[in-house]
Design a protein around this nucleic acid. Structure first.
Length: 566
RNA sequence: GGCAAGGUAGCUCAGCGGCAGAGCGGGCGCUUCAUAAGCGCUAGGUCAUAGGUUCGAAUCCUAUCCUUGCCA
């Protein structure tokens, strides 16, 4: 009986290229999880999209002399290209700029309002009389009252890292014209999170305790223990989703309230015009569907409290019906780069489009899977990348495949040989192969990605040991049946590796599927050991992975240094 | 300043109450089918520091130091 799985992945902010930290934090784990479940025969819907609103984008647009929409279009196209090349297999990847999204946000807003969970309130906000507009926090510059940094912004100081309110700044001024702002009254809507405190706590304790990752559970309970505060959900800006009620044309919905709604609107968008009978309601209203959100740790409270608060509070007699809560939010920690944290402003980053110009996707997927920041921060270094590629991917796995295929090619004219009677060694390896699929599955269900890929690679090492023990290059001279049995058994182990590693390295697995002589879709295999049948013609072996040359690390380090100094 | 996570072999990390582990790297040996790949053996650690609980602590508690992150 197939299970239904909904996977929501963090929405990247369209104000710059993607870096490796974002891939390791959310997109790769989500994709591994999705591919595993699909191969298993489960019914998966994985969605995300570009978050196109918010002041960082309007600021970026002004910086580049573009309109916000042009900035969004540029990066959205780039993200789509990255997903394609890296193999991040979204069922739907959209943006927050669609009419559908606006509609869904409006429905949710009104549903919460009906329940008394959204209310208006007057307050004082920064206003520039010169530009005749309210100023978002980031549109106010000034001197930090804590450290004296002269180029602090109204939301935080980049030097001491403290978060600020705009009016705290010394010599505060408008980011656009430099005039001194004033405080002016404005009416805004607030989300009454305080009213949902107990319902959320009960939910978190019932689904999360002992199941969620410790940091996710701890972080969430911490928020709940400190007490939830109501939060403003509208702003006096032009770039964003309009309110679904009359009389507020100059206001927009604040991004944090609107962006997560994308999980729902993307599913609805995916559903439109389908003819196979699947609909978004299968994933959102069926209580048996399991929902997961893959995000970075900075997003934990928005997903476990704010977004779930919106779902919990929404009245189920609204347009959207009963909405499911997730069963798990496997947030990752952060990835650092050569021991220092990724920094967009200082350009300390490996940008994904740059990576993809120089290297294949799977070595990156492999390294980031084997060293994923699941339970603690992890570090990306080019030295490790080089080592993992050459010593593990090429030497252990790639070479295993290559030596077995070459031996078969040479001794059996490239046809899968029929096995004779199996001895204990043969049976042990075949048993290990199917056991590995079960072990990897168990790890991925948790999910524990590092553990999963480690178990898969252990089978490659076992198979290498088996080959050494059986020495088919020697038996080929006097015992053809023995050689046939050995190679047939080794091919079975390789077939198992193809399946076990598919979620992590789909490109390599599909190549291997073809090398083993299959012309079917790899998805037809399912999560079982499916050895190539005797007599099947193998393709002429070519290496699965490319060995990196000696200069790789030095070259990449030089690039990093150069772009940082720029 | 508060909170959280972390400090374990040269490197990357696992273990989280019962004889210090893995992978890679180093050294030695075996092998030659394979992208000089594979296999075996081996060296290498006061488990940050100081106390405490316990028959027993890398693991639990307290304090201190250091790193990173979040928040004020």
């Amino acid at each position: 009986m197939p299970e239904r799985i909904f996977i929501g992945v963090a929405w990247p902010y369209a104000n710059g290229p993607l870096h490796l930290g974002q891939i390791a934090g959310a997109y790769l784990p989500a994709d591994i999880f999705a591919r595993y479940h699909r191969l298993r025969g489960n019914d998966v819907l994985m969605v995300s999209g570009t978050d196109q609103h918010g002041t960082p984008i309007t600021i970026r647009a002004e910086l580049e002399g573009l309109t916000p929409q042009q900035v969004v279009d540029k990066y959205h196209a780039q993200y789509l290209d990255v997903w394609e090349k890296l193999g991040i297999s979204f069922d739907r990847y959209t943006t927050t700029g669609t009419d559908n999204h606006r509609q869904v946000v409006g429905d949710l807003f009104l549903g919460l309002m009906r329940e008394g969970l959204i209310y208006p309130e007057n307050g004082e906000y920064a206003y520039c009389a010169n530009d005749n507009r309210f100023l978002p926090d980031r549109y106010v510059d000034g001197t930090c009252p804590h450290c004296g940094f002269e180029r602090a912004r109204g939301d935080q100081c980049d030097r001491c890292g403290r978060t600020l309110d705009p009016h705290e700044l010394i010599d505060w001024r408008c980011h656009i014209c430099g005039a001194t702002p004033q405080m002016r009254e404005s009416e805004h809507f607030f989300f009454k999170l305080s009213a949902l405190q107990e319902r959320l706590r009960q939910w978190v304790e019932s689904v999360g305790q002992g199941i969620w990752r410790p940091n996710v559970y701890g972080f969430t309970m911490n928020w709940l223990t400190e007490g939830l505060r109501d939060r403003a959900i509208t702003r006096d800006v032009e770039w964003g989703v309009p309110l679904p009620i009359e009389g507020y044309d100059d206001k927009r919905i604040y991004v944090w309230f609107e962006a997560c709604t994308g999980y729902l609107s993307a599913a609805i968008e995916w559903s439109e015009g389908r003819t196979d009978g699947r609909t978004w309601r299968d994933y959102w209203s069926d209580p048996d569907t399991r929902g997961y959100y893959f995000i970075g740790k900075d997003n934990i409270p928005f997903h476990t409290i704010v977004w779930t608060g919106m779902l919990v509070g929404y009245s189920d007699d609204g347009n959207l019906g009963q909405l499911n809560l997730p069963v798990n939010v496997p947030a990752n920690e952060f990835l650092s780069l050569e021991g220092q944290k990724f920094s967009t402003s200082q350009n300390w980053a490996v940008w994904v489009p740059d990576y993809l110009e120089r290297y294949d996707p799977d070595p990156l997927r492999y390294y980031l899977s084997a060293n994923m920041p699941e339970f603690g921060d992890a570090d990306f270094s080019w030295r490790e990348f080089y080592r993992r590629n050459n010593d593990e991917l090429v030497a252990t796995f790639g070479n295993l495949v290559h030596r077995v295929l070459t031996l078969t090619n040479r001794n059996f004219e490239g046809l899968v040989p029929a096995a004779g009677p199996l001895d204990g060694d043969d049976r042990a390896l075949i048993e290990r192969a199917s056991q590995t699929l079960e072990d990897v599955a168990a790890s991925l269900e948790e999910p524990r990605f590092r553990e999963g890929i480690g178990k898969a690679m252990a089978l490659a090492a076992d198979a290498n040991r088996y080959i050494d023990l059986k020495a088919p290059w020697r038996t080929a001279r006097e015992d053809r049946e023995r050689t046939a049995t050995t190679l047939s058994t080794a091919l079975t182990a390789i077939a198992a590796l193809k399946t076990a590693l598919y979620p992590f390295m789909p490109h390599a697995s599909e190549r291997l599927h073809a090398l083993l002589g299959f012309d079917s879709d790899i998805m037809a295999d399912g999560w079982t050991v499916n050895p190539p049948p005797a007599g099947q013609a193998l393709q002429t072996p070519t290496p699965l992975f490319t060995k990196l040359d000696e200069g790789t690390v030095e070259r990449e380090m030089a690039i990093l240094e150069a772009q940082t100094a720029r």
